[in-house]
Each structure stands twice: as C-alpha cells, then as structure tokens.
Amino acid sequence: MPDLHLPDTPKIPLARYLKQAKDDTKAQASVVAPDSVKVSTDSTMAMTEASSLDTWLQTAPQSQTEITIPENYNDSTPIKIVGPKTTGGNVLIHVGANAHVALQERWASSGDMLGVSVELDADEGAQIDWLSYDAFDADMVILQRYARLGKDVHLNWTVAGFSHNSGASLLTTDLNGSGAEATVNVGVLASAKQHIGYVTGITNYGEKTVGHINQRGVLVDKAHLAFNGVGHIVQGARGSDSQQENRVLMLSEAARGDANPILLIDENDVTAGHAASVSRVDAVQMYYLMSRGVPEAIAKRLVIRGFLEVGLSEIADSELRDELFKTIDETLVNADA
C-alpha cells in the first residue's frame, strides 16, 4: 500500500475526522432507472484510490452500487438514486458517450459516522444534469463526489446541502477532455451546532475547458461553515476559463462563516476570476423591502431565499424546490424562536 496523502482541505480538520471509525451497518442505495441503464450492486467496481480519504471511504463495510448509462442514452426523466437509510455507501456512475442524462441523488441517512463516495465518469459528448440533495440526519458525514469529464462533456451540477450533520463535503471535478464544461452550484443551509466544510474544486486539464463554481451558504444559530473554492488550471490547458464565487450569509451573532477562494493557474493563455464574501443581512435591502409594507420576518426570508436562489436556481424539479424553500422557512422560524 503506497503512502497516501490527504486532500488539501483548508479550515477543515479532515485528518481528525478520519480517525473515527465508520458506522458498521451495511445497506444498499436504491436506484430507479429505465431498463437500458445497468445497475449492479456489490460488484468489484474500480473506484479511485488516490488518497487516504479514498481508502477510508472504500474500506468495508460499505455498500457498492454501480450504474452504467449506455451511449446515446437520451431521457430527461431523472434517474433517481436514494442513499441507504442508516448508513453511507459508494456509488459509481458511468455515463456513455453522447448520452443525455439527468441524475437525482438524495441522501437522508442517519447514523454516527458515515462515509459517502460518489464517482461519475462521462465519455465524450455526454450532457449531464446532476442534482445532489443532501439531507443527512447523521452526526458526522465525510462525503466525496468526484466527476471526471471527457471531451466536450457538459455537466450542470447542483448540490443542495440541507443536512444536519457536521463533517466535510469534497466536490471535485476534473475537466480532462478538451472542450469539457462544468458548472457547480452549491447551496447550503446550516443551523444548530453544525460544523461543516465544503471543498469544491474544478481542475482544467483539457484545452478550452470551462469550470464555474457558485457557492452560497446561509448560517443560523451557532453553525460554522467553511467554503473552499479551488479553481486549478494546469499547464497546457490553453484557452480555459476558471471562475468562482463563494458567499456566506450569517444570520446570528454566534454563526461563523469562511469563504476561501483559491485559484491555481499554471498556464498563461487562460481567463480566471473569483469573488468571495462573508456578510450579514444587508440593512439597506431590508429597509427597501420593508418600506413597501413587507413585515421584517418576510423581508428577511425574501433576502435569504434570494441569496440561496443563485446556488439553487438550476433545480427544475418544482416539488423539490418547494421542499427546499419550506426547509429554509422552517429553519429560520426555529432559529428566530
């Protein structure tokens, strides 16, 4: 076994988290998909093992689910993946060339210490809408999602982080093929004593690749959220673009937010940019809304919804949107009390 390093996770004590033992229950994720999609469980699937984190995530007992979407698949009805109720798991998704697919993952697992690993690889020309809805009810979750995109693959990915756990979420995208494009939108609502960190990274390997990161987090109570955005353009990825925006809104005195944009640029012929902010509700916006007669509580809700909307705007599923907004409203009401 080679000496494996941990990924770099500023402000997130990953090594300390990984010292804890994972829950030892085992259960399968469930998948709803048309017949043309191949689903196998506990196959000896080959997942990446490049870091100690990968090793930790893959160590048994861990359920394995492998989903293969054939070439030229074309169906806008989302393939639904629901995580096991009381444990984490590993999911491997292959998307064939020129497939047009929508994926909807939903995790509401409970437990003490869960490991979740989802890997997606996409072949040339695939177009993917990917929604990851995290509503974990566990104490601690270490989660890694890893996307590798071939030539001209377009990925439109939204991660809704509405969980109650502490821990870390690593969202990594490699733009391997030329012309690959990824937009990763992350909307997070954190409350109570949650202590959670996101490392959302996109690496441009191929020429003329485009990676955009948009992270929005709202904090209430004593929650602590760290957003790390990592845009990396490697040498040779000419004509590539890396943009990111990380914004945290704190609604209580005791909440703490970090937004760390990191740009690593090893090529000259590229465009890149970043923006970051950690702020409280804007008094000028509140005054404007309230000057039209909207009561404070509703005005606050509008500002917060609006703030998160930028991270969640790509969610087309109206039922899910309603559910998310309901969760936002409930969390705010409880936080005010």
Partner: peptide
C-alpha cells in the same frame, strides 16, 4: 437609490407587498 436584490423577482416582491396589506 433603490436597493438591488438578487434572487427575488420584481413580481414576487410586489405581490408580497400587496399581500402584506
């Protein structure tokens, strides 16, 4: 100098203002 508020549509806001009354 009216404030700018992202994520809240004009129509949604005006309706909220009317309904508040």
């Amino acid at each position: 100098y009216p404030a700018e508020i992202a994520g809240v549509t004009n129509a949604e806001f005006i309706r909220a203002a009317i309904n508040a009354r």
